[in-house]
């Protein structure tokens, strides 16, 4: 009996110490998941503050935040969603800032499919074009805007498949199920280079750089570590990581 209570004591002790350990929960838009992990790693090494990262489409995360998800920081893939979260009282007003500017790119796993000026979209010589759900993912919305600026929305409508978020969309293209798709440049960049496939970087005259804003959420308002992390996002070591993924 005494033995048993010791065991229980240990379990309860370890559980409570887990919940008291100050973990910084961060919600990250899918396109930024990889760099965020690297930045978090450096942050952890320097500050000994534990960080946990959850990633999904911006809209999905916003919906979770509205329903009480315990994130302290939100790194969105746009500027509108953080603004709405501040206006509706889910985030700290003064905390919004642009942590990165991302680039939309048309990408194929096939190294010969996409020409350097994106003509393939006009010739329509493919079966499926993957775009992230525009309601949830800013990069998806940017993909649709690009089609509409090129006047191709009608023509390509029947070839579009929607990924749930930008990493899902990337998967559709990487697995070859969709011949090409609109993804974030960061997803196909490794150590400052585009490692495989063919691509067309959508010119800024057609799709402007996507400004991505971060905010401190209500759950992080009283946690000084949240501000520390956002400050770290502005540091040179964080910016170096950003650049290797093609962000500006």
């Amino acid at each position: 009996m005494r033995y048993l209570s010791t065991v229980f004591g240990l379990i309860i002790g370890s559980v409570s110490s887990l919940s008291y350990a100050t973990t910084l929960e961060i919600a990250v838009a899918s396109n930024f998941a990889e760099p965020a992990k690297q930045i978090a790693q450096q942050f952890e090494q320097q500050t000994k503050i534990q960080v946990s990262i959850s990633s999904a489409a911006t809209g999905v995360l916003a919906n979770q935040i509205r329903n009480g998800a315990p994130y302290k920081i939100f790194l969105s893939a746009d500027q509108t969603t953080p603004k709405i979260l501040i206006e509706t009282g889910y985030a700290v007003a003064a905390s919004q800032f642009t942590y990165a500017q991302g680039q939309l790119v048309l990408w194929s796993a096939n190294p010969h499919l996409i020409d350097s000026s994106g003509k393939i979209l006009t010739t329509g010589n493919f079966k499926y074009l993957a775009i992230a759900n525009p309601k949830l993912a800013p990069y998806g919305a940017a993909g649709y805007q690009t089609l509409s600026k090129l006047g191709l929305t009608q023509q390509l409508q029947s070839k579009i498949v929607n990924g749930d978020n930008i990493s899902n969309t990337y998967q559709y293209v990487a697995s070859g199920n969709a011949q090409l798709g609109f993804v974030a440049l960061a997803q196909i960049m490794q150590k400052g280079k585009i490692s495989q496939g063919s691509y067309w970087i959508v010119p800024q005259t057609i799709s402007p750089l996507i400004k991505q804003d971060g905010i401190i959420l209500k759950a992080g308002a009283s946690d000084p570590n949240a501000q520390k992390f956002l400050n770290f996002m502005r540091s040179e070591s964080a910016l170096t990581i950003l650049r290797t993924y093609g962000y500006r």
């Binding site: 999905v60 759900n133 309601k135 749930d164 559709y172």
Partner: peptide, 25 residues
């Protein structure tokens, strides 16, 4: 969700449509 591609009138089923509505608030 994984193999359908969420295409209206082709692979967008009711369960998926509910999910879309929820996520889009």
């Amino acid at each position: 969700l994984m193999i359908g591609g969420n295409i209206p009138h082709k692979t967008q089923l009711i369960s998926l449509q509910i999910y879309n509505h929820v996520e889009a608030f």
